[in-house]
Design a protein around this nucleic acid. Structure first.
Length: 338
DNA sequence: AAGACGAAAGTGGTTGA
DNA sequence: TCAACAACTTTCGTCTT
């Protein structure tokens, strides 16, 4: 598979995930609405044709005109929208807030065009003043050292996340973790890059898209050891409750790296589920166990991959796969016909 | 010849005194 | 702080397909 194809696949996956999330939100919204408006019948005429008038904040019966409820809170979306059309129609505020920009994307900018709000050109006298204002605003926006560091850390975070092809939600989570770390003064004595990498690692685990420490270390400028140490420290200090990673979380990524069908993938997941029940996974490196399960299921599914190929994408050795897969096959009574 | 297998020695990290 | 320890890696010779 070519590099571009891998990229395309990744993009497709993130898009699909986003779509799924949106669907979930939609369903939730519907349920909420159903709860909110128990009163769906007009007490005056019994009509069910009640209409929300958001501009006047009234619930009105379309039949007789009775105002049933006024002053209600608009529970419509603040900025969430499902497509471009809706965004244009429904948004009530400005840009969405994001944690990945150091000022959460909420600061204002002075326009670079020399036009006033009517589109008229600004006189040369005022233009000089405007120029000075712009200059100062730029300086103020990223003002003190803390802000500057934050901006740097967040750009670093984004760079690493891009290099690893991580979806947006992970980046946001990582940014939140980093901000928390800053708030609690955990950065002192540690490198910004180290903490950023650790935050990213934590975010990956929280979002169930685990990357190994090695992968993070690959794209960061900090050693694996340093990241691990920092990660343990901040997760303890921030009280991040992170369960040990499940091997299952690694399966989709490894499978797509090996060009395996979904069928093989789900069989591997099934193997891992059973293995988990019999506690064959505890104490073992999750990547090794995942690799072994994929190896087994690739053979069972008639799409055999060599131990080396699996070992390559999983980042473990063939020996480990051998040990794990023999364990699994023995304990789960899986016959392997070569 | 490539892949699978297994033994033996080495490595890095955790644990408990 | 140090030794014991389990998991994992590296290396290498042998067997199988």
């Amino acid at each position: 598979m070519s590099v571009q194809e891998v990229e395309k696949l990744k993009i497709l996956q993130t898009e699909r995930e986003a779509l799924r999330n949106r669907l979930k939100e939609r369903v939730k919204e519907h349920e909420k609405k159903a709860e909110d408006h128990t009163e769906t019948v007009c007490p005056e005429c019994g009509s069910r044709q009640l209409v929300h008038d958001y501009e006047r904040a009234e619930l009105v019966c379309q039949n007789c005109g009775l105002v049933i409820d006024d002053d209600f809170i608009d529970r419509g979306p603040e900025w969430r929208a499902f497509d471009h059309d809706q965004r244009m129609k429904r948004s009530r505020v400005g840009a969405p807030m994001t944690f990945t920009i150091h000022d959460k994307g909420l600061s204002t900018m002075i326009d670079w065009r020399n036009r006033d709000s009517y589109g008229r050109a600004i006189s040369s006298k005022n233009r000089a003043q405007l120029y000075r204002l712009r200059k100062w605003q730029r300086r103020i926006r990223v003002s003190n050292a803390t802000e500057r560091n934050l901006a740097f850390a967040l750009s670093e975070l984004d760079r690493m996340a891009s290099a690893l092809g991580l979806p947006r939600n992970v980046r946001e989570t990582a940014a939140v973790v980093y901000r928390d770390a800053v708030d609690k003064n955990l950065i002192r004595g540690r490198s910004i890059e180290g903490v950023a990498a650790a935050a990213l690692y934590a975010a990956c685990r929280q979002c169930s898209v685990p990357r190994t420490l090695d992968e993070i270390a690959e794209v960061s400028r900090v050693s694996r050891k340093e990241i691990g140490r920092t990660y343990r420290f901040i997760s303890r200090e921030l009280g991040l409750k992170l369960l040990p990673t499940s091997p299952i979380d690694y399966v989709p990524r490894f499978c797509s790296g090996l060009n395996l069908k979904g069928e093989v993938q789900s069989r591997a997941v099934e193997i891992l589920r059973q293995a988990g029940e019999r506690e064959l996974t505890s104490g073992r490196g999750p990547t090794g166990v995942a690799a072994a399960a994929i190896y087994i299921s690739s053979i069972l599914g008639g799409e055999r991959r060599t131990q080396r190929e699996v070992a390559e994408v999983a980042g473990v050795t063939e020996v480990t796969i051998r040990n794990r897969y023999k364990e699994l096959a023995e304990k789960l009574d899986i016959e392997i016909i070569l």
